[in-house]
Nucleic acid binder design. Structure first.
Lengths: 349, 349
DNA sequence: CTGAAAGCGCTTACAG
DNA sequence: CTGAAAGCGCTTACAG
């Protein structure tokens, strides 16, 4: 195929090939070209063959903007993430993009900062582009008005991982509470008594449930966490915050048997803090996380954590969304995927 | 603002607010609405104020599809990645999305599989959507025809990290060869004699340069790698491949002083293999990687590696691309960002 | 089976 | 300063 095949001469300059070009060369109307290319019935075999031949000969490609504008249907999704460079969200994104591309949908990825204002802005630009649907992560209750506007506009969306009470939409995640319980019980079983939790954001319902679950798992063994009610209990889900809060906790509560991170990234910060203080894990203290990040089991000191099937959450979320785009209606579905406690080096003693 | 403000009644059903709605309510033509909203001169203050008031009262949002179709200008970029869930690409994506959103561009993220066919397909769907420009990673020479077609179509694009010879376009990356040299020299300095390289893909020019550099750095100290010419020298940049090839190398060459991964992910696989064989790092053998992934320095055994400023590469790439979209022309620029050898536990002896 | 025509929601010369 | 009209590239009833 020659390169020029994708363009058409037009008085010195050249432009992209349109249906009109195909129609003229094939000697038919653009309606017939459209019907042929969209595989609609009622085009004679002879014409159909000629149109296809001309179209591919010219290297014709349908203009998606025009198609979506006119038809009112879009095959584009929007995915809002706190931060792609966080492996947790990156894995979700992979799951979403994988299913979406398989079904012929393209996906916009946008970054939501810490503020809900930005989520509203992103949802706005998604609306401007008339996306077929959206997927949200890291939602908080403050996002409810934004989501309700989408419901009013009849734009389908899915909540991933975190849920927002009172907003009726499909949700995919895990049973964070149950995962927390299992982790708490494991710590009790291996004999931990003095336990601190260095949790995730206060306004994340997933973090909240993990924390409640872990407390419950410990409580059923008669253990109460040391830093209940302390400001170290919740914080940003980043390594620096885990590190800083681990140091505070170790300063405040002296000897600690176990430190639980609200997620693996926090737990890495906790491990850093232990290394910085000469606390040998798991001999002096055990450490656990939540998520099972792909790099949480590197080298000689692998992290105990609760596996969250991130990519699968992305898959299921995309499927839910595409269902609704294709006409499924009904109140919000809830899909709870399997989590699994992964006992590894950092609690192995 | 009421929810219904974003919609307009239309015989039982309701539709999104358009410029026509705004024009009618404001008692002006849609041309005037367009001129006002686009802040073009030549609209009286009185009319301007009225139009803005009506537009925001109605919750009007411009339809991006229509705008891009009619104006012929798009504020949308495409980013093709092997895999977002690979932290290296995730960081690049973060950099690109950060700058793009700051400049008012949205970005499509697509997954390129291992084959070049898929890259061509992705570039096709990007063209269909009339994107303003594209960014590519993980290019190989086989992608040259696809890229040349973009040049013919006058669609700007940027090559990130990997370069493709003979395709004139902006490129952003690091001096992989120099990074390799520094790493090789470091290994020689700490007394390594028996060195194996477990490199990246054969057809990645970045991996190739790293490998050549490392060999050169060793050679300048009179050291030749053990597995030169061996099939273990190149392979997939994934953990399993690093693990498998490390085992092969250790089987074939007996005692080895140093194992170099083509990137950190490969090096993690190498570390796993060492742990599996009871080889204590760095006592029995040292290990190094390339990239400085954020999780390459976790806990008690942090990986020696060469820092690649991934997010900054994304930033610079997006800036280059936006320059060209805004009219900059001229032959391909080359931006070499700073790398840095990070000496850590795995080579610390 | 095929085509002329209207229209999706905008932008853009061009008159007035 | 303002508006009527054409047109971006398609899709979609509707005639013939």
């Amino acid at each position: 195929m020659k390169h020029d095949d994708h363009r058409v001469k037009n008085g010195g300059h050249s432009r992209r090939v349109t249906m009109t070009d195909v129609a003229q060369l094939a000697g038919v109307s653009i309606a017939t070209v459209s019907n042929t290319l969209n595989e609609r019935p009622g085009v004679s075999d002879e014409v159909r063959a000629r149109v296809w031949a001309v179209a591919s000969g010219l290297g014709y490609r349908r203009n998606t903007l025009a198609q979506e504008l006119r038809s009112g249907f879009s095959k584009t999704l929007g995915l809002a993430l706190v931060d792609v460079s966080n492996p947790f969200y990156a894995d979700l994104a992979k799951g979403v993009i994988g299913v979406a591309e398989g079904e012929g949908y393209a996906v916009f990825v946008a970054h939501v900062g810490p503020s809900s204002d930005h989520l509203d802005e992103i949802s706005g630009t998604f609306l401007d582009r008339r996306l077929a649907g959206m997927l949200f992560t890291s939602l908080t209750n403050a996002d409810a008005p934004t989501l309700r506007r989408l419901i009013d506009l009849n734009v389908p969306f899915v909540k991933l991982v975190r849920d927002v009470a009172g907003v009726d939409a499909d949700w995919v995640g895990i049973d964070d509470f149950a995962g927390g319980v299992e982790l708490g019980q494991h710590l009790a079983e291996i004999g931990c008594q003095r336990v601190c939790i260095v949790g995730g954001p206060r306004d994340s319902n997933a973090s909240h449930n993990r924390l409640l679950g872990c407390k419950a798992g410990l409580a059923s063994n008669g253990i109460e966490i040391l830093n209940a009610g302390d400001e170290t209990l919740t914080g940003l889900p980043i390594r620096a915050s885990g590190n800083e809060r681990a140091h505070k906790v170790l300063d405040r509560f002296g000897r600690v048997d176990a430190l639980v991170g609200g997620n693996d990234v926090i737990a890495f910060g906790v491990l850093d803090a232990c290394a910085e203080r000469g606390i040998e894990v798991p001999r002096d203290a055990v450490v656990a996380g939540f998520d099972n990040m792909s790099l949480s089991h590197v080298g000689p000191l692998q992290l105990t954590t609760v596996d969250v099937p991130r990519e699968e959450i992305g898959h299921q979320g995309a499927r839910f969304l595409i269902d609704r785009i294709q006409g499924f209606s009904g109140s919000g579905r809830r899909k709870v995927l399997e989590h699994r406690l992964m006992i590894r080096d950092t609690t192995n003693r």
